[in-house]
């Protein structure tokens, strides 16, 4: 089944952030190599004055992928809402990756402001993709505020730690079986992404792990393959781990079977 956000099908489960690349050309090559069909773009500064980021925006447009503008760096509800409105005008989309950041050190979401901003934006016709932690109480409030996608972090932004709290991530998946869940932030290696996909997460959004790789284009491919593998594994049904060995062929009757040491 294809991934869908707000009724729009997206043919790749890898979503890519566009910051920190050595050049727009390398960003573009990495997106193409990864097969990603959705990129997120920070609006805060590019668009800040006089639509001055047009050059970069033109390059993103040429990628021919879905654009999910974000409110990275916003610390208050007002800032986030204003940035979202600017993004809607600039990128001609009602999609918005909503970030309300508590502080620059941890880059944790400020969840009270997040819920408030999500409510305001949903009422204003936006399709909100909230950046959040795996807190179920906050998740329910966001769903109540109209969000049809949830994006919990795996670990703090840019940390590359992978899934810091796998059991909470599993619980969240079980608690919201029908809402698209995207791991947003903290993924450092393709294996982290595969792990989250095996749990049944719908997609992975990441930036630094590809942008700051020695060869971002190759790393884009590596993530695409890991995410495919994780998704296939989830769809095929993983075996349950067991406490003991379970031989794949029957042991009784095996030649040289030693009953004393069995």
């Amino acid at each position: 089944m294809m991934l869908e956000f707000y009724g729009i099908g997206i043919s790749s489960r890898l979503l890519i952030g566009t910051a920190l690349y050595p050049s727009p050309q390398i960003l573009s090559d990495a997106v193409v190599a990864s097969g990603s069909k959705l990129v997120t773009v920070s609006v805060r500064r590019e668009a800040a004055r006089a639509r001055a980021g047009q050059g970069f925006w033109e390059l993103i447009k040429q990628l021919d992928v879905h654009v999910l503008p974000n409110t990275a760096g916003c610390k208050t509800v007002k800032e986030a809402v204003t940035t979202a409105q600017m993004a809607r005008e600039l990128f001609e989309t009602d999609w918005i990756k909503l970030e309300v950041i508590a502080n620059d050190d941890t880059l944790q979401p400020e969840v009270f402001g997040l819920v408030e901003a999500a409510r305001i934006l949903n009422e204003d016709g936006f399709k909100v993709f909230p950046y959040m932690t795996e807190d179920l109480g906050v998740a329910e409030k966001l769903v109540g505020a109209g969000c049809e996608v949830l994006m919990p972090w795996g670990a703090p932004i840019g940390s590359g730690q992978g899934l810091a709290n796998p059991s909470a991530m599993k619980t969240m998946r079980a608690y919201f079986p029908d809402i698209p869940l995207v791991v947003d932030a903290g993924i450092g290696a393709p294996s982290h992404a595969a792990f989250a996909m095996e749990m049944g997460y719908d997609a992975i959004l990441l930036n630094t792990a590809i942008a700051k790789a020695g060869d971002p284009v190759k790393m884009g491919r590596a993530f695409a393959q890991a995410i495919d593998a994780g998704r296939l594994a989830y769809e095929s049904g993983l075996m349950e781990p067991r406490d003991m060995a379970s031989p794949s062929t029957p042991v009784a009757g095996t030649p040289f079977f030693n009953i004393d040491s069995a």
């Binding site: 590019e46 800040a48 004055r49 050059g55 970069f56």
Partner: peptide, 10 residues
Amino acid sequence: IESDEAGPVT
């Protein structure tokens, strides 16, 4: 910053 704005520092 991806911008061709050359105005004052923010």
